[in-house]
Design a protein around this nucleic acid. Sequence first.
DNA 1: ATAAACTTTCAATATTTTTTGAAAGTTTGA
DNA 2: TCAAACTTTCAAAAAATATTGAAAGTTTAT
Lengths: 167, 167
Amino acid sequence: MEFKEAKEKFISTWGALGSLWGINKAMAQIHALLFISPEPLTMEDIMEELGISRGNTSMNLRGLMDWGIVRKVIVPGERKEFFESEKDVTELSRQIAKERSRRELQPTIKVLKEISSIPDDGSAKTKEFIKQTKAMHELTDTADTMMNRIVSQEQNWITKTLVKFLK
Amino acid sequence: MEFKEAKEKFISTWGALGSLWGINKAMAQIHALLFISPEPLTMEDIMEELGISRGNTSMNLRGLMDWGIVRKVIVPGERKEFFESEKDVTELSRQIAKERSRRELQPTIKVLKEISSIPDDGSAKTKEFIKQTKAMHELTDTADTMMNRIVSQEQNWITKTLVKFLK
DNA sequence: ATAAACTTTCAATATTTTTTGAAAGTTTGA
DNA sequence: TCAAACTTTCAAAAAATATTGAAAGTTTAT
């Protein structure tokens, strides 16, 4: 396999995997492109490489910046804006974990806490509902906490050891 | 808040969160319904509760069985088929983690390994490509391993301790 | 202040995904 | 063996989502 083929494979694989972390195809592909590019790219570059429209590129770059994993770069003497991806995979996962927690897990946890606190009227239905939603609340809360700890900056020795152990 | 409202909230929240683990709305809602139901339900029950068609119900129940989190139950003396969800949240996450790994992570890891092994022709582009895809391969591989260990059956004391610690 | 160079917005359009429902298929009991 | 009771399949329709492109907006240099 040579470069061009490998590059296309990376971009399409990453695009397809986008759903895994909740972003659309174009967004994931733009990210993939920036992630492997040795230097920042312009909107023009991205449009051309991926064959997508200006509007699409603009909107999805904004989306990536909202996720905190793509930045505008100012190149002195250049009128155009350049973009670059976060290149460090550790920082990348940290950022993604943080955002997913904020956008999806936290709101879900809040709802689960709320609905698992309805009064127990003694019926089988209610009893089961409370039991199951409580369990789900605990699970989600634990998962959220763990995920954030695992990727968190304040990785102390015990965590590091643990990560090594798990691996 | 009373039961009916809480139930609807659970079903719609779970449905919306479906994307988090890669399943569609109807599938997630059917699962939610079964998850809080004290006894197994028929297709008829599900159609009625969620207001969806017979075909849709049938296909999505099949999908949930493929995920290994819903089972057919045979009720003696009944012609209809009944369905029940896995009720234990630990077993539920185990199953989901296992399936996601198999369906999404493993194939991605394979592609990353393959494309990060292209020959280095010395160009900046190729060098960056190899460096970045290698890093991504390692990250994905570690994440996959950790995820599977965390939810794996063979949770020995160190893992348990660790989980407690992280929480 | 103007115009060139560039970016953003958003209504219209295209694409993808989900849902429906009726026909075909299967199982069970008499 | 038949027919009633039930489930599955799948082409067509509907709904949801993503994309386009041109007009409006912004910035910069002179």
